[in-house]
Each structure stands twice: as C-alpha cells, then as structure tokens.
C-alpha cells in the first residue's frame, strides 16, 4: 500500500471541511494521507481493526458483506465527497463490519482515527464539527438501510394480501 502525504490546500478544497477553521484544517491535514486504490482492490476487510476514517476523493467504492453459501453481496456504494469507514471513530463498532472494495481506480483521503479522536477530545470545537458530519453520514446510511429493508421493488404478487 502506498500512502501519500496530504497538502493543506487539498484539505481546504474539500467541501465537507469548509466549516472547519484554518487551524482545524491544518490539524486534519497533518493526520491524513492519500490512499490510492485500484479496481477490485480490497481497501479494508470485514473483521479488520478500524483505524482509519476515509473520505472519497475520486472513484467509487463498494461496501460488501460476504454471506456464507451465497457469496459477496454489494449493499452500498460510496461516491466522491462521501465519508467511508465511520466505524473508525466509534467504540461500539471497533472492527470493520463490511469489506470495502474499489469498483474502479480511485483515491481516498485516509484520516488516522486514533489521532482524530484524540484531537477531538482535546478540542471540542473540532470534535463537534467532526461528530456532526459523522452523525449525518450515519443518519443517511440508516435511512438507506431502512429503505432497502422494505424491499420496495420486490414482486408484490408474491406477498399480496386480498384483505
């Protein structure tokens, strides 16, 4: 794996970080690196320790779960400017519950999770902004998951009730 350092300018150009102060943007830059990935490459795997929070720069990443006897099932894709791997900064989900795989070549911004948590603890202004973004990501994921659970496009005739 080939991590590349990150410039402050790159961090500044990311819309998600627009509401951070310059000081905080610098803090993020220092703990971040660029993680290029290739088509079909595993970025992380189910069961890995969650040590990174990612932000998609370009490309497309699929989140997959392996179902024994049924193979890999793709349950969500992540697009540029979206966050990935939010479990990296939670205690409850300390390990990856899904596998992330490149759908095509691309790049991720990789933020060191332990360092980010420490910085957030030390500076609650930064902590609030970061947690606010993470909460939004989780809320979006939850809504999408609920809608997928409804299986709203399934064949209604298979479960149609006449009363």
């Amino acid at each position: 794996m080939d991590f590349q350092p990150v410039s402050f300018e790159l961090i500044r150009s990311i819309p998600l970080f627009a509401d951070l102060s310059i000081q905080h943007q610098k803090v993020i830059a220092e703990m971040s690196s660029i993680r290029p990935f290739q088509e079909n490459e595993e970025i992380f795997h189910e069961g890995d320790t969650s040590d990174c929070l990612y932000l998609m720069l370009d490309g497309r990443v699929a989140l997959e779960i392996h179902i024994p006897n049924r193979g890999r099932s793709r349950i969500l894709t992540v697009e540029p400017q979206e966050m990935l791997g939010w479990s990296g900064i939670t205690d409850v989900v300390p390990r990856r519950t899904l596998t992330a795989r490149g759908v095509c070549d691309g790049r991720l911004l990789c933020i060191d999770a332990p360092k980010l948590i420490k910085a957030c603890e030390q500076d609650h202004d930064l902590g609030f902004v970061v947690m606010h973004h993470v909460a939004n990501v989780i809320a979006g994921r939850l809504m999408a998951t609920r809608m997928q659970l409804l299986d709203m496009f399934s064949d209604p005739s298979s479960e149609a009730r006449h009363g």
Binding site: P156, S157, E159, A160, R161, H162, G163
Partner: peptide, 14 residues
C-alpha cells in the same frame, strides 16, 4: 369490501 381498495402490491385500506 376488502377488494375495493386492492391493487397490485397490497391493499390501500387494509
């Protein structure tokens, strides 16, 4: 009548 509001996919007034 249950069939009154039945449509493919279920019943509007179940």
């Amino acid at each position: 009548n249950p069939g009154y509001s039945y449509q493919a996919g279920g019943n509007t007034r179940p």
